[in-house]
């Protein structure tokens, strides 16, 4: 383990892994509760346009990605709030637009090729620099801070939006807030697992926690624990086995889910009082 931390880039990578492992599942718990498990995927596609825009304009891709992803998330939330019937299709249009837009902008960039998108599509956590780490840390603190302050209200919103409104909560604002927070999280996690796999880190640890926990709070805590285990474990195995970090992280998270599924079933069976639904 020692040689892992002897290298500067590995220290940065490790710190980024921990931050991503904490934030993505924390936001993911609310997203899943709100029945928007695929929101992260949608935002990921839109963020790709942001990354490409960064290349085209010579700006830091992380910054343009945050801006474009947040705008995309706002658009998704507005479409969702408007009505459920055509919402799915409208979202799909946005996703395809994001992906196609990204590829097109890269093509327009002098000297750009889709190969330069690869780090963003599939993640390369070991390429995180000191400056990147600052940005990631700042965004992660922002995300966790918002969840700490608004968590109680977001719980009600994600459980039952109508009840939230009847309690006088600012549901439109909260809906936009959780969407934007998800967008920021996608960008934070982008360097670790890539835009195409970002959503996995928001959903899979939550699904794992769900198998073992009985409360919302415990689900979130477990999801964050499993998130960190997956990101740090994935980073470590990518270092020693020379495999891509993003894929390693997601496969580890999925393995964790499989284990929890079995354990959870066993635990539930030994709780005789509960009736299953």
């Amino acid at each position: 383990m020692i040689e892992l931390f002897a290298l500067d880039f590995m220290r940065y990578a490790l710190a980024a892994a921990v931050l991503v492992g904490l934030t993505a599942p924390a936001v993911g718990t609310f997203i899943v509760q709100r029945r928007l498990a695929l929101l992260g995927d949608g935002i990921g596609h839109v963020a790709l346009t942001g990354v490409a825009l960064g290349f085209l304009t010579g700006t830091a891709p992380v910054l343009t990605a945050v801006v474009v992803a947040a705008l995309g998330a706002v658009a998704i939330e507005l479409v969702r709030a408007r009505g459920r019937t055509s919402g799915d299709v409208a979202l799909a249009l946005l996703f395809y637009g994001g992906l196609a837009g990204g590829v097109m902008l890269i093509y327009l960039t002098p000297g750009g090729s889709t190969a330069s998108l690869n780090t963003y599509l599939f993640g390369a956590i070991t390429s995180v620099t000191g400056a990147d780490l600052w940005v990631i840390a700042l965004l992660a603190v922002l995300v966790l801070g918002v969840l700490a302050v608004f968590g109680r209200e977001l719980f009600v919103l994600c459980q039952d939006e109508e009840v939230a409104r009847a309690a006088g909560l600012p549901t439109r604002f909260l809906g936009l807030l959780i969407a934007v927070v998800a967008a920021v999280t996608v960008v934070v996690a982008m360097r670790a697992v890539g835009l195409l796999l970002v959503s996995a880190l928001m959903v899979v640890p939550v699904a794992t926690g769900q198998q073992l926990a009985r409360s919302f709070r415990a689900t979130m805590a477990l999801a964050m624990l499993f998130g960190v285990l997956a990101t740090v474990g994935g980073l470590t195995s990518s270092f020693y086995l020379d495999v891509p970090s993003g894929a390693a992280i997601v496969l580890l998270a999925l393995a964790g889910f499989a284990v929890a599924l079995t354990v959870g079933r066993f635990v539930r069976r030994s709780r005789p009082r509960e009736s299953t639904i």
Partner: peptide, 29 residues
């Protein structure tokens, strides 16, 4: 409401749900 909405399959305890009834009386910070 007419029926309980169970958010996306994320478990929530009876106490957590009942406690959310206090939300209109609680301040954010």
């Amino acid at each position: 409401p007419q029926r309980l909405s169970v958010g996306g399959g994320v478990p929530a305890t009876v106490r957590e749900v009942v406690a959310s009834g206090r939300i209109a009386r609680q301040s954010r910070f």
